[in-house]
């Protein structure tokens, strides 16, 4: 075989093995970064949860732990997937900012209700609040030490 071809093949293999090594590194980083977000819930620091009160469906998980960012909507990528024609794909989300939980409407077509009233853009949440999207109603339960903040 021509020596230049041999060297080219060798360099190709070298490049591929190097790329494979780096890929293996980055996948581990990627997964660890994902795991870090879930750490508070996993470590038993659950700060509160949502329950679905209406409509009561037996076949769906009706208790959702609060995460630093919790999204709601019709799209499958949301933390809480709402199968309702009145829900937008990206409808609303609950975020933790400066020690408080906020409900944010993400420009939904039919609006997000907090205790029966449509919110303008965002509102601070408190223990026992009711969040309404379409015909669904969710009740917020914050843990005691957290409501004190």
């Amino acid at each position: 075989m021509n020596i230049e071809v041999t060297i080219f093949i060798l360099r190709l293999i070298a490049g591929l093995s190097l790329a494979g090594f780096l890929l293996a590194l980055f996948v581990v980083i990627w997964r660890n970064a994902g795991g870090a977000i879930q750490l508070p819930a996993a470590a038993g620091f659950e700060q509160g949860h949502l329950t679905c009160e209406q409509p009561a469906l037996a076949d769906e998980a009706q208790r959702y732990s609060l995460r630093p960012i919790l999204t709601m909507g019709r799209a499958e990528a949301n933390t809480i997937v709402i199968r309702d024609d009145y829900a937008s794909a990206k409808h609303a989300r609950i975020v933790l900012e400066q020690g408080r939980w906020w409900l944010e409407d993400r420009g939904s077509r039919n609006g997000t209700q907090l205790n029966g009233e449509t919110i303008a853009s965002r509102a601070i949440l408190a223990d026992g609040d009711e969040i309404g999207i379409g015909k669904y109603r969710y009740r917020l339960h914050l843990n005691r030490e957290y409501t004190a903040l």
């Binding site: 060798l10 360099r11 293999i13 070298a14 093995s17 190097l18 494979g20 090594f21 293996a24 590194l25």
Partner: peptide, 11 residues
């Protein structure tokens, strides 16, 4: 990762 490193060294 060790296998890839080995291939890289061998090449």
């Amino acid at each position: 990762m060790l296998a890839l490193a080995g291939v890289f060294m061998a090449v």
